[in-house]
Write a protein that binds this DNA or RNA. Structure first.
Lengths: 191, 191
DNA sequence: CCCTGGGTATACTGATCGGTGAACCCACCA
DNA sequence: TGGTGGGTTCACCGATCAGTATACCCAGGG
């Protein structure tokens, strides 16, 4: 018997609709009826596939996380040298935010779902931890001094740029500049 | 005839309950019935005072903004010298986040209320713009080079530290250190 | 003394919330 | 040929949502 979590055409349609609606309108504000209607499937099928709204929310975030990690990893891999690779996530951020005007889906989810037992919390924390570890690994690979502290600083910059995205200020370019300066100052060939 | 917006004992109780519940549990997740019950007043009185939930939300954010600005301004005023004053908001942030584990109430509100016409948007934007202007003014007063860019960078750092507050990483100390380094490097007596 | 106004108490509206029950339809496969 | 299982249709559940109606209570002030 195939697990209900196996890929099915209906499952993909539901996730696509959930991602669009949840991100644009907020998780609490969007009901399962709306998602069912928007994806052209039945509420019954939705519950057969995901079991509850909470698990659907977690699946939406996990899918978004997967897409985002792919973009970041590709951008890192395309970097010219190990030093440029450290700030590659900021290049990916420019691409990502072009279609994400409402800030970070994971921070937003934590804002709406205060219960730490909600499955969305694990997904959100995993995402931020992955980025922090990525920064640390890239900084170490580039020979940067104090990779731990540098990684924390880069994470804060990254989240700050994302958090200010819904505001009418332009912060991304300035943030990326600062990130590159930090890495330059920490890498071994620094003057 | 006194305007319904005048101070009244009931109004204060409602705002106190709203602030606690909205911040802790989220705006959409908290109903007006819960606020009425929690503040010991009647839903009828709540609507007589605020007119609608949207306006109550705006009033909650405005009140929180007022309290936060007072703290920040006091911290700035207590600074030893103009250079230290530039990063004083990061000292205030340490005090503020001690009782605010769920991140920035304004960013959270924008996450939950995507409609730009919602009165909460204006309050949230005003808050961030006030901080940006404060940073710029303090940087200029301290004689820092490039006060505009510096202010943007400090704002991003500030929001990044706030946004990562719900996460199990400790970012505030490292962020404040970085902020001080940025100001030190930009102020005229820099080496 | 009485009246006005802020507040209370209670009941109610129609809509929507997350979630379920039961019967059915149909393509694929043994 | 006859299941089997993913999907549909539609009705339904109790709870809660934002917001309103009506009637009452009571302190302050002319």
């Amino acid at each position: 018997m195939p697990a209900p979590h196996a890929a099915s055409p209906a499952r993909g349609r539901i996730l696509a609709a959930a991602e669009e609606l949840f991100y644009d309108q907020g998780i609490t504000a969007v009901g399962v009826d709306l998602i069912a209607e928007h994806s052209g499937i039945t509420k019954r099928t939705l519950y057969n596939q995901f079991g509850s709204k909470a698990q659907l929310v977690a699946a939406y975030l996990a899918e978004r996380d997967r897409r985002w990690r792919t973009l970041v990893q590709e951008t890192v891999d395309r970097s010219d040298d190990p030093v440029a690779a450290v700030t590659a996530p900021f290049d990916a951020l420019r691409t990502w935010t072009a279609t994400s005007p409402r800030g970070c889906a994971f921070i937003n989810a934590l804002a709406e779902l205060p219960d730490p037992a909600h499955p969305a919390h694990r997904v959100a924390e995993d995402q931020k931890r992955w980025l922090l570890d990525l920064f640390r690994g890239l900084a170490a690979a580039a020979g940067c001094a104090g990779p731990d502290a540098l990684a924390t600083r880069l994470l804060v910059l990254h989240e700050g740029a994302l958090a200010t995205r819904p505001l009418p200020f332009d912060t991304l370019a300035e943030t990326a500049d600062l990130a590159r300066e930090l890495v330059s100052a920490a890498e071994p060939s620094a003057v």
